[in-house]
């Protein structure tokens, strides 16, 4: 029997594109720090410049994420209230403390890096890495716990966000690294390794790592969509919207083609050594993650709940 809603009120969706930017930038901070931590803790030879670039990207992205989070509040001047109250059931409450602690550690680590003393700060790096791991987890949980929405209520989301952090964090380092002037690059490569030409040249392994995260993300997205396609009416409606409806261009074009396939091909193909192509691929990978976050956030709210 066909039923149609003949009267209802509308509800303005609480979250918009700024939240997608915040999710992307916070993932960037986390991913970049983890890269810096990996270089430091694992002592990756030949990657010091990359690690240092990452160590600088992390606090900047973290601070930007924090500012976005505050700016995005209805009452930004009251942001301090999240620190005078702790609600263990609220991912946002956890997140605020995690992000704050992360930013502090990332800034401290950046200072040691700029002072060239990063080798003696393994404890700091380890703590920062742990917090960096929590960032995609808590942001993911903000969605998981956020709304009764098939796109959000999936335990895969935090994992997906972790892979996204890998993509955008590493891509940001590649992108920024390639844009650095020779002088800055030389300073970053003070220990004398891998500073060459007018930028920080990432090792080919970095591109491959990004490609790994891109592929991992894609696998998770496919699993999620397949799981939803057979679930509730709402879930089917949403999958249809993502694959063939309002969000199809963003998903197929933005996320999949431009943001995943093209960078994957560049990072794994013959162009892997070309710095310009690498920069381009990194930029596209960041945009791809952003496109997917837009689909998640706006698509996830794109149907009435009642």
């Amino acid at each position: 029997m066909n039923a149609s809603i003949v009267y209802d009120v509308f509800h303005v969706n609480p979250f918009g594109w700024v939240v997608a930017v915040y999710f992307t930038v916070s993932a960037m901070a986390a991913g970049a720090f983890l890269l810096a931590a990996a270089v430091n803790l694992l002592g990756l030879k030949g990657q010091q410049a990359v690690g240092r670039t990452a160590a600088l990207v992390a606090p900047l992205a973290g601070a930007l994420a924090g500012l976005l989070l505050i700016a995005e509040l209805g009452r930004p001047t009251r942001f301090w209230r999240v620190f005078t109250h702790f609600n263990p059931a609220s991912p946002v409450s956890w997140g605020a403390f995690i992000l704050l602690a992360f930013i502090i550690i990332a800034v401290l680590y950046a200072r040691t890096v700029l002072a060239g003393k990063e080798e003696g700060s393994r404890g700091l790096v380890a703590a920062g890495a742990a917090l960096a791991c929590l960032i995609p987890v808590y942001t993911g949980f903000e969605l998981v716990r956020g709304r009764v929405s098939p796109l959000w209520n999936s335990p895969l989301i935090p994992v997906l966000f972790f892979f996204a952090a890998g993509v955008v964090g590493l891509s940001a380092v590649v992108l920024i690294g390639s844009a650095l002037t020779a002088g800055v690059a030389r300073r970053l490569g003070a220990s004398g390794v891998a500073a060459a030409g007018d930028g920080v040249a990432p090792a080919a392994g970095l591109g491959k790592t990004i490609a790994f995260f891109l592929a991992g993300s894609l696998v998770l997205v496919v699993i999620q969509l397949l799981a939803l396609a057979g679930a509730s009416t709402e879930a089917v409606t949403i999958v249809r919207k993502v694959l063939a409806g309002r969000f199809a261009v963003l998903f197929w074009g933005g996320y999949l083609a431009v943001g995943t396939v093209v960078p994957f091909v560049i990072f794994t193909g013959r162009g892997a050594g070309n710095r310009t192509l690498q920069a381009l691929a990194s930029l596209l990978a960041v945009l791809g993650v952003f496109a997917l976050r837009l689909v998640d956030i706006i698509g996830g709210q794109s149907f009435p709940l009642n």
């Binding site: 979250f15 009251r78 999240v82 956020g146 709304r147 009642n306």
Partner: peptide, 15 residues
Amino acid sequence: KCIGCRYCIASCPYQ
């Protein structure tokens, strides 16, 4: 006390 973060709005299953 409300800072306007809107997570409560998002999380209400009843809008």
